Simulated scan of single mutants.
Amino acid sequence: MTSPQVQLNHTVVHSSDRSASARFLAGILGLTVGAPFGPFLPVDLANGVTLDFYQAPEGPIQGQHYAFLVADEDFDAMIDRLEAAGVTYYADPNHTQPHEVNGLFGGRGAYFDDPDGHNMEIMTVPYARP
């Protein structure tokens, strides 16, 4: 039996200010914000997945985790942009090792919060699966 060909196409990122949140993440990752699409403000990733920033109704935003596989040669520039923006990055998802980078699976990685408290991760090597 063959496996179905299933790919993630897009996901909605709830935000208190879709424009500020989309610009923040796009700026850190070195991407651009697309034209509005209905109530969404898209940021397209290299693998065809779109993050659709959506301005949620009033109330608290439930923080989510988003992990981005990035090229090793782009990693330092992303860290530089975090520092320039005054955003603390961490080596761990629990944010106990500030201004440090991890070396998981022979790559480099870091975590940081976006303006709504989503736990963002950049990593240069994907996590190994058994």
Results as ranks from 00 to 15, higher is better:
T96D: 09
F37A: 10
G103N: 13
P130A: 08
G86E: 07
R23K: 13
V70H: 03
P39L: 09
V125Q: 15
S16R: 15
Y66F: 15
A77P: 00
P36Y: 10
F105R: 12
T2G: 01
D80E: 14
D17T: 06
D74A: 11
T32F: 04
H14K: 14
M120H: 00
V13T: 07
A84M: 03
T11F: 13
D72V: 00
A56Q: 15
E58K: 14
Y90P: 04
F75H: 09
H99Q: 13
P42D: 03
G63E: 09
E73T: 09
R129G: 01
D116G: 06
D17C: 08
D52C: 09
G86D: 04
V49R: 11
F40V: 03
T50P: 00
T50H: 14
V13F: 02
S21D: 14
A91K: 10
D74I: 00
H65L: 05
G59D: 14
F24R: 11
A46D: 15
G107Y: 12
T50A: 15
I28W: 07
E83C: 06
P4D: 04
A20K: 15
R108M: 05
F37K: 12
N94Q: 13
G109A: 06
R18T: 01
D92K: 08
Y90N: 07
G103A: 12
Y66K: 00
L31F: 09
P57G: 14
E58N: 14
I122L: 13
A110E: 10
S19Q: 15
P42K: 09
A46K: 11
A128P: 01
P57K: 14
G38F: 13
G63T: 07
A20C: 02
Y66W: 12
G48D: 11
P39S: 14
M1Q: 09
V13C: 08
F105W: 15
F40D: 10
N102Q: 11
T32K: 14
E121H: 08
L41V: 05
L25G: 01
I61N: 07
M78G: 00
S15D: 05
